Simulated assay, not measured.
Amino acid sequence: MGNDLKAVTLIGFTAVAVSTSDVCIPLIDQYKQAVNWSNRILHSKKESEFAPTGNTEINKEIIEVAAGRGTTRKEDYGSDKIFRGDQYLQGKEGCGSQKNWIGAVEYDVRGAFLQHNRILKKTNSDGSIKYGYSTSKDYKKIHEIKKK
Results as ranks from 00 to 15, higher is better:
1 M>N: 14
3 N>M: 10
3 N>C: 01
3 N>I: 05
7 A>R: 15
11 I>V: 08
11 I>F: 09
13 F>D: 12
13 F>T: 14
15 A>S: 14
20 T>I: 12
20 T>G: 13
21 S>F: 12
23 V>L: 09
24 C>V: 10
25 I>G: 01
26 P>A: 11
29 D>C: 00
30 Q>M: 08
31 Y>W: 06
31 Y>Q: 00
31 Y>R: 04
31 Y>M: 10
34 A>M: 00
34 A>W: 01
35 V>E: 08
35 V>G: 08
36 N>T: 10
37 W>T: 10
40 R>F: 08
40 R>Q: 12
42 L>Q: 07
45 K>A: 04
45 K>Y: 03
45 K>R: 11
46 K>V: 10
48 S>P: 00
48 S>Q: 04
49 E>I: 15
49 E>D: 12
49 E>M: 14
51 A>D: 07
54 G>D: 05
54 G>H: 00
56 T>Q: 07
59 N>Q: 01
61 E>G: 02
62 I>D: 00
65 V>Y: 00
66 A>C: 06
66 A>R: 01
67 A>R: 08
68 G>M: 02
69 R>P: 03
71 T>D: 09
71 T>Y: 01
72 T>N: 02
72 T>D: 06
74 K>D: 05
77 Y>N: 13
78 G>W: 02
78 G>A: 08
78 G>I: 01
79 S>D: 15
81 K>W: 09
81 K>Q: 13
84 R>Q: 12
88 Y>S: 04
90 Q>T: 05
93 E>N: 11
93 E>S: 14
94 G>Q: 08
98 Q>T: 11
99 K>G: 04
101 W>L: 09
104 A>W: 01
104 A>D: 06
105 V>Y: 03
107 Y>I: 09
108 D>G: 08
111 G>N: 11
112 A>G: 13
113 F>G: 14
116 H>P: 03
119 I>T: 05
120 L>T: 00
122 K>Y: 13
122 K>L: 14
124 N>V: 06
124 N>P: 01
126 D>G: 03
129 I>N: 06
133 Y>T: 01
134 S>P: 07
134 S>A: 10
134 S>I: 02
